[in-house]
Design a protein around this nucleic acid. Structure first.
Lengths: 228, 228
DNA sequence: GGTAAAAATATTGGCGCCAATTATGTTGCA
DNA sequence: TGCAACATAATTGGCGCCAATATTTTTACC
């Protein structure tokens, strides 16, 4: 097994490695609390130790992982309080982004979003959990991309990524998954009708209800409070 | 000039250096667009080159500075569009934080805030611009600290720091400075009355009006829009 | 056999060296 | 003098080495 490409462009490598690792964490290839050994990452991503360390540092700043001196880096585990805090902020930002998107999206955009909603519907039946997750991500990403505020989008995705390392089952049951799917189509209807307020309300519920603590899946979704 | 302390605790050094540099940028010791030469930073902060590079990397991730490969790092210059986008988000988050703080602050907290408001009033008359700025920062920091949402606070301050590298005069005139001072005291009145909605409205105006483009200082503050 | 000390192993992380790149200064030529 | 090509200096940044620290295994002793 000779190293296929020990060193490639070197400038793109550096920048993307952090995102590659972040994606692996999103896909649950590394679980919350798990240690990320530098040697393993070197091999898995065919990168130099130096680049690995840089990427880990970046992810630590982004709070995706946690750094323990002389122990290493591990996927961040966030407690329920912090998770609730993140949700509260997400509700504010995502409703705002959706409202703005409703006012700015055009026909072509709606068509593309529709396609993703349909893809999700299909994935609910046949796809894997990670497939569903990625399509869901793409749907919301595309929707918020019409809000016209790049910083707002960055902030939203930073928060979503940060909330990942929690003991939360995003779709705690198949019914929850179906509910998400229905809500996507309801959002599309609101978008087509130009009903910004309605869309915002849907998004608020979607964000809050989509993620239920794994321990108590039947808990009714509380009204979004600012503190957990 | 012998180096007083070339290496100190080494673990705190690393973590704090980024914040020290960030503070220097806040205080305008480095101006937007200015290059941060690693050798200079080494000497000024008595740190090793390695630590300097780490700190610069961190600030680049935080978007406080910008990295140009093979050129180095420079204080980020943000355009008016991005600045507007940041303001729009800040209005959302800071009004929410203020509203929550109003419901949770106690008498002792109000007293401490009052002290800072008084300090600001004094600094308006006698203090330097950076003094005013730091006291103002402390005032808002303390106020938001009562909101009960740590992530929200982090997010707010990340955005405030990020908006710093713009061609904006925060207090474009002495009148603007006086207005800020008056608004601080108005906020205190709202807090004492437990008027969360009133406080939120004040904060929204404060955030939006406090920062006026230097080029057109007389422009009336527009209603907060989501996109710039 | 169980526990504690000690050795061996594994992993992280500080740091210096120097190649690559860019900026600056100088020379030669029209 | 103005411009371009070249030489020189300054600066960044990749990377390997190995010391410091943590973890596991072995050994020794009760």
């Amino acid at each position: 097994m000779t190293p296929k490409r020990k060193r490639r462009n070197t400038s793109t490598r550096r920048a993307d490695l952090a995102n590659e690792i972040a994606e692996a964490i999103r896909l649950r290839l590394f679980r919350p609390g798990e240690w990320l050994r530098q040697i393993d990452l070197e091999e898995r991503f065919q990168a130099t130790r130096f680049d690995v360390r840089r990427a880990l540092d970046e992810l630590a700043v982004r709070k995706t992982i946690e750094h323990v001196p002389n122990r290493g880096y591990r996927v961040a585990e966030i407690d329920l309080k912090t998770y609730g805090e993140i949700l509260a902020i997400r509700v504010m930002l995502e409703t705002a982004a959706a409202e703005s998107a409703a006012a700015r999206i055009d026909g072509a955009g709606i068509a593309r979003l529709d396609a993703l909603a349909a893809q999700f519907s299909a994935a609910v039946l046949t796809g894997s959990r990670t497939e569903q997750s990625e399509i869901n991500r793409a749907f919301h990403q595309l929707m918020y991309s019409f809000c016209g505020n790049a910083v707002l989008q960055e902030t939203i995705w930073a928060l979503r990524d940060r909330g990942r390392g929690s003991q939360i089952t995003v779709w705690s049951s198949h019914e929850a998954l179906l509910a998400s799917d229905r809500e996507h189509h309801a959002m599309m209807a609101a978008l087509r009708a130009g009903d910004a307020a309605g869309l915002a309300a849907l998004v608020a519920r979607h964000v809050t209800k989509g993620a239920v603590p794994a321990a108590r899946p039947a808990e009714p979704a509380a009204a979004p409070k600012l503190s957990a």
